Amino acid sequence: MSALRFDANLKWLFTEHDFLDRFAAAAAAGFDAVEYPDPYPHPAAELRKRLEDNGLHQVLVNTPMGEQGTREQQGITCFPDLVPRFKSEFLTALDYAATLGADFVHVVGGMIPPGTSRDRAFARYVANVVWASEQAAGTGVRLLLEAQNKRDAPGFILETQAQARAVAEACDAGNVGVLVDVYHAQIDEGDLTELLGRELPGAFHIQIADPPRRHEPGTGELNFRTVFEAIAASGYEGWIGCEYAPLAGTVDGLGWRGELTP
């Protein structure tokens, strides 16, 4: 069985601190790596210094997303009318990832724009992902595709793990893979042990939170001991991103790492 490696998502964890202070807090809590979706308010050099000062590895960043409440809030990769903007923003994300030594850029798919058919949006999404994979070739940065649940992200372009896997396979580039988010997968697809057995052999990254309220493992409906055993048994050797809202403080809620992991 593979040893499980957890990284701290600094959008969700250690929010008791200002963002730039969360790196030190994560290291002090025993994390060796971090991820966060939105590095862009900060110079890449400053973020890299925070990583180096605290002995942390950067796992991923997202492509830029719009403000909450706008049609761009879940990304623009599937928007037929925003292709030049997508390309410019992807290159910015790729540059940040390279500077930070990140493993991945999560190419966030987006919600289908009003007045656009699903087929047209999906075709643009695939075309943009193929283009992005070509730009990332040779950089050492790989791309992630993630399905999101229809309750939290109605109209999101990727609705299932199988869809995400099909797009990654269609790219046929070796640098595009699936981000399996346990929270989203349980809400929309269920039968999680079977799903993990099917999807983890080809997965690039995993994220976790306990439905239905997206808190830490052990606070919701999932048997995370079984989930973690399934991940370990699959041979998965990548990072597992902790993308949850702590129920009562980040550090106080970290006991699951010893109680529920194999």
Rank of each mutant, 00 (worst) to 15 (best):
G177P: 00
H42N: 14
R142I: 00
I112L: 07
P114E: 13
G235W: 05
E72N: 11
A136W: 01
A33C: 13
V61L: 13
Y236P: 06
L100R: 08
A26W: 00
L195Q: 13
K150P: 14
D181H: 04
C78Q: 10
E199R: 10
Q74E: 11
A136I: 00
L254K: 00
G115F: 03
G258V: 05
I157P: 05
V61G: 07
R85M: 11
F23I: 11
S234R: 03
V108C: 03
G69E: 10
P84W: 07
E159T: 15
G258W: 02
A102T: 05
N223F: 08
L51G: 04
L13P: 10
D152Y: 07
Q135K: 14
N175S: 08
G140E: 08
Q68S: 15
H57D: 12
L260T: 09
L91Q: 12
E67D: 14
V180T: 00
T77A: 15
Q58T: 12
G258E: 04
V176E: 00
E216G: 00
V105G: 01
F79M: 13
Q74S: 14
R118Q: 05
A127Y: 09
K49Q: 14
V105R: 01
R151H: 14
A24V: 12
Q148G: 13
G69Y: 08
V130F: 10
R120V: 13
I206K: 03
P262C: 01
R198E: 15
